[in-house]
Write a protein that binds this DNA or RNA. Structure first.
Length: 301
DNA sequence: CTTGGGACCTGGCTGC
DNA sequence: TGCAGCCAGGTCCCAA
């Protein structure tokens, strides 16, 4: 599933082959791929145009063309861009031939990917939230954006209008690293929690780019290699396994129709001190009793 | 305005 | 072995 680190990797690895080259031939066997333009429009506009620059914004890949137009690709769930594959394959949705005799293929098993040809990038990506790796993305920016939403923090991190580029895997990893339960309300995190979350979002995304992305499902890099970021996952897609911190069992819940993995011990829903929790639950006596017995923890249900 | 839920899409998996 | 039915999740769209 291409999220920010995967799209960034694709951009970095594709750029040396594409930037400065022009399109010589474009085939789009799957017209459903296109949003707001026809196959003929795209072929006519692209052929002969040079790619001036390749850019990523959130999970969007942006090709700046020499005529000022912009080709934008979103890979969604199962899309990939393959450089010079031996065969185009049965899932090829678009094939781009370049002036250096290389070609790249937009391959997408589930056909959820999208492609736009526009005059103005903002007509497609204007509503995206800030780039989490930009200098301007400070803890205060994150705090301000989260404070407007009374929804689970997991849902807020997945909302591209709040922050761009984070998907299901990295949201789970960042919340685990910050020890924040995925169902905590976005507008009720403390400043300290937001600082920790902000720090971990950036750390985890940077590390994942360093590992060239996570190949959990169908993600492959343009030249066919896999990424290795998933080997560093602590909770994502690890339901039922042991938590690497506390040894407890990693659980899976569904938040906003998304499989969500977390450690209930490391990411408690209620973070108030134990004494306050017990007061709220009317459990003074039980706490005293458990302490007098030398118990260091109390299970609240 | 915000929030939640369904649609899109299809290969792969589960269970009968 | 075959097949129906469910699941995965990024984004858009609609209803409350």
């Amino acid at each position: 599933m291409p999220e920010l680190p995967e799209v960034e990797t694709i951009k970095n690895e594709l750029a040396p082959w594409i930037v400065g080259q022009s399109f010589t031939k474009v085939a789009i066997p799957d017209a459903k791929l296109l949003s707001g333009c026809s196959v003929r429009d795209v072929r006519r506009a692209l052929v002969g145009q040079k790619v001036e620059r390749l850019e990523r914004r959130g999970k969007y890949l942006i090709f700046h063309l020499s005529n000022g137009q912009v080709l934008i690709i979103h890979l969604r769930m199962t899309g990939s861009l393959l450089l010079d594959p031996e065969e185009v394959g049965r899932y090829a949705r678009a094939v781009f031939h370049l002036s250096n005799w290389h070609r790249f293929v937009f391959s997408d098993r589930r056909r959820l990917g999208k492609m736009w040809l526009v005059e103005d990038v903002d007509s497609v990506v204007c509503k995206l939230g800030p780039e989490p790796l930009d200098r301007g993305f400070t803890p205060n920016v994150l705090r301000q954006r989260l404070s407007r939403h009374h929804i689970p923090i997991k849902a807020a991190l997945l909302d591209q209008h709040i922050v761009a580029g984070i998907g299901n895997m990295y949201a789970d990893e960042a919340l685990f690293a910050a020890r924040i339960h995925p169902l905590r309300k976005a507008d009720q995190l403390s400043l300290e929690e937001i600082r920790t979350l902000h720090n971990n979002i950036r750390r985890i995304l940077r590390a994942a780019i360093g590992s060239k992305g996570a190949s959990v499902d169908s993600y492959v890099r343009p030249e066919g290699e896999l990424g290795t970021a998933h080997f560093d996952f602590k909770v994502a897609h690890r339901g039922g396994e042991r938590c690497p911190i506390c040894g407890g069992t990693i659980e899976r819940v569904v938040v906003q129709n998304r499989g969500t993995y977390f450690c209930p011990r490391c990411q408690p829903l209620d973070r108030r001190p134990l004494t306050q929790k017990c007061a709220a639950a009317g459990l003074h006596e039980r706490l005293k009793a458990s302490r007098s017995l030398g118990s260091s923890s109390l299970i609240l249900t």
